[in-house]
């Protein structure tokens, strides 16, 4: 299955990846060949098969509702690109 450049651009937008037109062309070809590879899946007969999301047949464990985490804002924000008064700063959010 081959991908069009428009589809590639839509995917890149959904994934928030900026690319040059040359890169977009290149990725379009590569993604098309990857999709050809995965298209082999369509051969498998799976009508009666339950999808498997996880290798282990376990159920979710629950955590008691007790506070275990303390304020570590300073250490967490020491790796942040931009902070002010304890807030993470980003370009204006427009609603």
């Amino acid at each position: 299955m081959s991908l069009t450049i428009e589809q590639l651009k839509q995917v890149a937008h959904l994934a928030r990846l900026e690319m040059t037109p040359d890169q977009a062309d290149h990725y379009t070809q590569q993604l098309s060949s990857i999709l050809d590879l995965v298209d082999q899946l369509q051969q498998a007969k799976t009508d009666q098969v339950e999808p498997m999301a996880h290798p282990l047949e376990m159920s979710q464990r629950l955590r008691p509702d007790t506070v275990t985490e303390t304020n570590q804002r300073d250490v967490f924000q020491s790796v942040a690109p931009s902070v002010e008064d304890g807030l993470y700063v980003v370009p204006k959010v427009i609603e």
Binding site: L3, V11, A12, A15, L17, E18, Y27, I34, L35, V38
Partner: peptide
């Protein structure tokens, strides 16, 4: 994201998104 991720990572992100 475009600058931070290399080509292989970007390819897989796009395949996965698709």
């Amino acid at each position: 994201r475009g600058e931070g991720f290399g080509a292989e990572v970007q390819r897989r992100i796009m395949v996965g998104t698709y």
